[in-house]
């Protein structure tokens, strides 16, 4: 029983260490986004960035708060306030070099992915994009 618990704890530590940190070249996060994120997260929550098929340009961003972290996730941590962002490997392929910002305008206030060097064309609501393909 005790050994099982220890085993699980150890497994937990091991997976946590396995998450590679995102570099500055992979994801940039504005100060505004980082401080807003710190305000909105509950304990243990992180901002999850995902790319999925859909939307009027073919691929759309999905941004949500998530407590889970999976094996293929990559992690970003704010050096200022410790807020965390996770991206899975598949989605990162469509996001490399993009910036996470927090935008407040008349339409909505939200985290948004801007300046994505892979996106060729976005739709007017900003939630979907067409990547530059091959």
């Amino acid at each position: 029983m005790l050994t099982q618990k220890i085993g699980r704890l150890m497994a937990c530590t091991v997976t946590r260490q396995a998450h590679r940190m995102l570099t500055e070249q992979e994801i940039k996060v504005t100060n505004k986004a980082a401080s807003r994120l710190k305000e909105v997260v509950d304990n243990g929550e992180r901002l999850r960035l995902e790319v999925d098929g859909g939307g009027c340009s073919g691929f759309e961003y999905k941004i949500r708060l998530d407590k889970k972290i999976n094996n293929d996730d990559l992690l970003w941590k704010s050096s200022e306030n410790g807020a965390e962002i996770v991206v899975d490997e598949l989605s990162l392929g469509f996001l490399k070099g993009a910036t996470v910002d927090f935008v407040e305008d008349l339409m909505k206030s939200s985290f948004r992915i801007v300046n994505n060097p892979i996106a060729e064309k976005g739709c007017s609501c900003g939630s979907s994009f067409a990547p530059k393909m091959d």
């Binding site: 859909g54 939307g55 009027c56 340009s57 073919g58 759309e60 739709c123 007017s124 979907s128």
Partner: peptide, 16 residues
Amino acid sequence: LLNMVSLDKGCYVGQE
């Protein structure tokens, strides 16, 4: 006219 396009279904590629 040939029932191939829905105008109220939501986003799809080329919808805009």
